[in-house]
Nucleic acid binder design. Structure first.
Lengths: 343, 343
DNA sequence: CTGAAAGCGCTTACAG
DNA sequence: CTGAAAGCGCTTACAG
C-alpha cells in the first residue's frame, strides 16, 4: 500500500495525497475529506524511509544515554520519551557506557540516521568541547551545563550541582558530623558531573573550616551499585573513623549502605549516609536514603520543550537550572546524642 | 557527500561503489581497494533512508519493552542492545506501559519504521494471539512462552515460571512457613506472566496440602515499587498472621520490604520475603532478598541470536527455557526457632 | 568485472 | 486548487 494506491482509490494524483497527509493548506475541503477517508479505511501509513530520504532528515529524536546502570537516567529516559511521544515525535534511545564518547557517537548517529534533534542524558563537557562543533542539529544536554561552551545549537538543563552538594554537606555538618567521607566521580576531571558536586561539598567544608584530606577522605567511583560497594570498602578501611559519607549518586549510596552493613556498621547508627539524585529506590530502601532530589519531571519536560522549540521555531539555545530538594530520609542522624531531640 | 561523490573521486560508477560497500564478491581487488580508500578518507556513511527505501526494510531491530519501572527489563534492554550492536545491528528501543498492547504497537511500528526484527521484552499472550497474525517479520518474545501460539515467525525464551515459582514456595515451606501470602500479577489473566508464577506457587502449596485462600492470601499488583508497597499493606492488613510473602517480582518485593518496615514488621524477623527476577538490587538491599534469579545474560544472548538466525538464515521459530537459580539471600528465615541452627 | 538505467515511495517547486 | 514531473541516495537486474 503506497501513496499511489491511495491516489488511485481517491481518484486524484499522488501530489494531492501527499499534500493532505502533510496538512498543506492548499487543498479543497472535499478532496481532503475524500483522501482521509481512503487513508483511514486502508490504515495507510506513509513509508518513513521515502519520506525522510526526500526531506533529508529523519523524524526521530535521539536520546543518547550515558551510563547504563544509572537509575536516574532510566527515569529520565522514560519521562522524556513519554513527553516526546506525546508531542508526536518518534524517539530512538541509545545506551552508551559511562566512559564512552557520547559526542563521537552522536556524530556517527547523525551520519547514519539523521535525527532531527538529540537529547543527551549525561555528558562529559570535554567531549562536547572537542567534538560538538561537527554537529549542526538542535541538541539538549541534561544533567550538566553547557553554558560555558557557547554552542548556538546546544541547550542544557541541570541541577545546580555545586550548590546542591554544598547543601548536602551543610546538612551533614548541621547534624554534628565533621569526619565526612565523599565518594563518587573523579576529583581530577572537571568536565564531568561528579566534579561540580565534589567541589560544592569541598566549598561547604572549607566555609565551616572543617578539615578534609582529599587523598584520604575522598574515593572516586563510577555510577553503579557494585562500584559504590567496592569504593565504600576502600574508603572505610582507609578512614575507619568517618561518621558520615556523602555518595555523589543514589545508586552508589545504596551500594555503600550494603557495604557498611557487611562491615558491621549500621546506617545511620554508626555511619550517616547521603545520596544524590532522588531516585524512587531512595524512598524504598531501608533506611530511606537522605538525598538531593533532582526534578526529573521538570528536566524531561523542559528538555523536550527546549529541543522542540529549537527544531521548529529556531529558538536560540538556553541554559537553565532546575530546582532541587534536599530529602532528609532516615539515613542521617546527629552525631551527638543530646541533639537528637532537635529532630 | 553521497555515493556519487565517492564514485567521482574513485573514478568509477556509483554501482561499483555500492557493490564495494555491500561486500559483493564480483568487484576486482584493485577497485575495491581504491573505493575503500576514498570512503575511509571521506568518512563516508551511506544514507540509511535511501538504503532502506531501496531495500524495502530498515536495518534496525526494535526492542519493545513492556513495563517501564521493571528493572529486570532495564537489565535485559542493556544486555540485548549490547549483543545486537556487537553483531553490527542497529537498535531502536521503545518503552510501553505495562498495560499497553505491545502487539498493536508493533504493527504500527512496522508500518512506520519497517524494522527487520522485533524483540519483545515482556508480553501478554492474549495480545499475541489476537494480533500477531498481522506481523510477518521475525520476532522473539522474552520472559514468556509463545510455544502454544504456534506462529512460524515468533520464537520465545523464558524461565520456567511455573517450576521456578513452585520451588520458591517449596523453599518457604521447607523453612516451616505455612501461612504464606502471594502478591503480584493477576489471578485471572492467564496470558500474563504473573499467572504461571501464581499457578506454580499454588501447585506447591497443594502438593504439600497447605491451605491457601486465594481471596484472602493473594493480592494482585503491578510491577513497581509503589504498587508493591500498597499491595503489601492491603495483604497484611487483611491477613496479619502471615509469616512469609512471595512477591512475583523483585521490584514489588522491595516495595513490600519497605511496607513491612513501616508497619513495624521486620524482615525476616517477623515476616520472611521472597522475590522473583534476581535484579542487581536484590543483592544490595538490606536484608539481601531471597529470589529466583533469571539468567538475563543468557536470555539476551540467545534472544538476539535466535532473532538474527531467523533474519539471516530463515531458521524456524524455537521456544526455549532458560535455567534459573534460587538465591537464598537473607530475607527468609525458619519459622521455628529450634530449626535455626540448621541454617 | 563494470556501467547505465530503472525504480524504491515520497515531497515539492512549477505550471496551469 | 490540482497534476505532471523531477529528484532525494541508494541497490540491482541487465547488458556487455
Amino acid at each position: 500500500m503506497t501513496i499511489k494506491d491511495i491516489a488511485r482509490l481517491a481518484g486524484c494524483s499522488v501530489g494531492t495525497v501527499s499534500r493532505v497527509l502533510n496538512n498543506h493548506p492548499d487543498v479543497s475541503e472535499a478532496m481532503r475529506k475524500k483522501v482521509m477517508e481512503v487513508v483511514e479505511e486502508q490504515g495507510f501509513q506513509p513509508n518513513t524511509n521515502a519520506r525522510h530520504l526526500k526531506m533529508q532528515a529523519s523524524s526521530a529524536v535521539a536520546l543518547v544515554v550515558k551510563g547504563t546502570s544509572n537509575m536516574l537516567f532510566a527515569d529520565l529516559v522514560e519521562r522524556t520519551q513519554a513527553m516526546l511521544v506525546g508531542s508526536g515525535e518518534e524517539t530512538v534511545v541509545c545506551y552508551l557506557d559511562e566512559d564512552a564518547d557520547e559526542v563521537a557517537y552522536a556524530v556517527q548517529l547523525c551520519r547514519e540516521r539523521r535525527p532531527k534533534g538529540i537529547l543527551f542524558l549525561g555528558g562529559d563537557l570535554e567531549n562536547f568541547a572537542r567534538g560538538f562543533g561537527q554537529l549542526e542539529l538542535p541538541c539538549v544536554l541534561l544533567t550538566n551545563s553547557a553554558r560555558e561552551l557557547g554552542f548556538p545549537n546546544l541547550s542544557s538543563l541541570t541541577t545546580d550541582d555545586t550548590e546542591a552538594a554544598a547543601q548536602a554537606i551543610e546538612y551533614l555538618l548541621s547534624q554534628g558530623h565533621t569526619r565526612i567521607g565523599i565518594l563518587g566521580g573523579s576529583a581530577h576531571i572537571s568536565s564531568q558531573i561528579g566534579y561540580s558536586r565534589l567541589q560544592g561539598g569541598l566549598q561547604s567544608l572549607r566555609r565551616h573550616k572543617v578539615e578534609f584530606d582529599l587523598e584520604r577522605q575522598y574515593e572516586p567511583c563510577r555510577y553503579s551499585l557494585s562500584e559504590g560497594y567496592a569504593a565504600a570498602q576502600r574508603l572505610l578501611s582507609r578512614c575507619p573513623d568517618l561518621t558520615a559519607v556523602f555518595a555523589l549518586s543514589d545508586v552508589m549510596a545504596i551500594g555503600v549502605m550494603r557495604a557498611l552493613q557487611d562491615m558491621g556498621r549500621t546506617v545511620p547508627g554508626d555511619v550517616s549516609l547521603m545520596g544524590y539524585d532522588g531516585i524512587a529506590m531512595a524512598r524504598y530502601c531501608v533506611p530511606r536514603l537522605a538525598t538531593i532530589c533532582q526534578d526529573t519531571g521538570r528536566m524531561a519536560r523542559r528538555g523536550g520543550e527546549m529541543l522542540l522549540h529549537r527544531i521548529y521555531s529556531q529558538r536560540p539555545a538556553a541554559h537553565e537550572l532546575v530546582p532541587f530538594q534536599l530529602i532528609r530520609g532516615e539515613s542521617v542522624r546527629p552525631v551527638f546524642p543530646d541533639t537528637e531531640r532537635l529532630l
